[in-house]
Amino acid sequence: MEEFTIINENNEFKKGKVISVFNISNSNREIVLFSSEDFDSENANLQIAYLNIDADGYNYISQIDDEKVLKEAMYIVKDMIEVINNG
């Protein structure tokens, strides 16, 4: 199931949808690109986070604290979207 529920810093519930999973050379951890969408409006955000596995084999997400990794991951997302748009 690639949809999940999010609660943000303002305690608002949102719907998350996984778009893609990738990893970068600077970090061994996997990074997930997902969208967070409002339940009752058309607003949405593109987001990134670390993708982890718990003891039962289920995935969970955690925030990317390393500024360098965050920046590079954002560049990669930009690059991926450019590739998709331009071929």
């Binding site: 999940f4 529920t5 999010i6 609660i7 943000n8 810093e9 519930f13 949102k14 998350g16 969208s35 967070s36 969408e37 058309e42 607003n43 949405a44 955000n45 593109l46 987001q47 990134i48 986070a49 969970y60 997400i61 925030q63 990317i64 965050l70 954002m74 997302v77």
Partner: peptide, 17 residues
């Protein structure tokens, strides 16, 4: 499960559905 996310920090851009 419900996952806590700091949208402000990990946001790339606002986008339509």
């Amino acid at each position: 499960m419900c996952y806590r996310v700091n949208e402000r920090k990990s946001k790339i851009c606002e986008i339509s559905r």
